[in-house]
């Protein structure tokens, strides 16, 4: 089931929650909406579900415009951030809810509902919890109940709002893999909201990065990590080191490293170079770089280097050549991405 968003706009007072958002999600895709809090990702998800309304723009699900279609008729499975389980109903009643509220003609018989619910609970690997109340089960189990409840109505699209936000790190890890497998097995189209880039990278086919209500970039995780469109995405997708540079004739030269030059289409003048800490090669000196400190005793060492008054942190495996603090050395930048200097953040 494909989902298409066209030019969605929404304002809360003067602040734009959604600013001209257009996006197409393919059938069977698992897409992550990634962004810091307040970037509009939850608003976007809720607009898709019909829980909020855009001021303008269109939501099209499987070719059908959703304008004027209320949430209850959209056939979308929504998993809420804190699960929103009905606290006064048992797990089984929670899962059965979507079937029990069907109009009489389309509602399955009570026995059919019961067996459907049991099948879903089994699928979620919580088949023995049907009689419990939400407050009697763990966070990870609640997450599974919320999923079972959303899937009971055989939704065309599954939306998940920060699905692992309220879980501890260990449960979160195992649920990630499990959810991704479930998605593939059931042939769902899923969209999930997260502010955790590692989670998005691990699970999603594609990631849409949001900032200030705008989609900044939509790409596969590897592309996003390797080729961020701007410094915001670069820094959001992983640890980033920043060096000042200046652009002359389409070539960016990093201050203090006259040999390191990178082709760029940034305009002439000052710019910044962003580098992942593991992308820097450290070579024995003497050279222009002073080693401030070497930290860590695991497989990875963290080097703090001083380069023409700029601090540069570098990650090196323990079996690589490592300088000692106080020494000078050379660096070789395998890659650097050049971005124009950011105007003051909004």
């Amino acid at each position: 089931m494909s989902v298409e968003l066209r030019g969605l706009r929404k304002n809360y007072g003067r602040a734009a929650a959604l600013d001209d958002v257009s996006l197409t999600i393919r059938d069977g895709e698992f897409l992550a909406l990634l962004g810091p809090s307040g970037s509009g990702k939850t608003t976007l998800l809720r607009t898709l579900a019909g829980l909020e309304f855009a001021d303008s723009g269109e939501v099209i699900i499987n070719g059908q415009p959703m304008h004027g279609v209320p949430a209850r008729e959209r056939g979308i499975g929504f998993v809420f951030q804190h699960y929103a389980l009905f606290r006064h109903m048992t797990v089984a009643r929670n899962v059965a809810f979507g079937l029990e509220v069907l109009p009489r003609g389309r509602r399955p018989a009570a026995s059919a509902i019961r067996s459907r619910v049991q099948d879903l609970l089994d699928l979620m690997e919580i088949g023995n919890l049907g009689g419990r109340y939400p407050e009697q089960i763990s966070g990870g189990q609640r997450q599974r109940v919320a999923l079972a409840r959303a899937l009971a109505i055989e939704p065309r699209v599954l939306l998940l709002d920060e699905p692992f936000g309220a879980l501890d790190a260990k449960v979160r890890k195992s649920l990630r893999v499990w959810l991704r497998q479930l998605h593939d097995r059931m042939g769902l189209t899923s969209i999930f909201v997260t502010h955790d880039q590692a989670e998005a990278m691990e699970m999603a086919d594609r990631i849409a990065v949001l900032r200030g209500g705008r989609i900044v970039q939509v790409d596969a995780p590897e592309t996003l990590y390797a080729e961020p469109v701007d410094s915001f995405v670069h820094e959001f997708m992983g640890e980033s080191e920043k060096l000042q540079c200046s652009v002359i004739d389409g070539l960016a030269v990093i201050e203090g490293l006259p040999d390191a030059a990178f082709a760029t289409d940034c305009p002439k003048g000052p710019a910044i170079a962003l580098i992942r800490p593991h992308e820097v090669e450290v070579l024995p000196g003497p050279g222009p770089v002073r080693v401030e400190s070497v930290h860590g005793n695991g497989p990875i060492r963290r080097l703090r280097l001083m380069l023409a008054g700029q601090m540069l942190e570098v990650l090196k495996p323990e079996d690589a050549w490592l300088p000692v603090a106080g020494e000078t050395c050379n660096v070789d930048l395998a890659r650097a991405r050049i971005y124009p200097v950011e105007r003051a953040a909004r």
Binding site: L51, P70, F78, F80, A84, L85, V101
Partner: peptide
Amino acid sequence: ASEEEAAITLGAG
């Protein structure tokens, strides 16, 4: 409102 929102996404009137 999330429980009520959950109810309507599940098709409740």
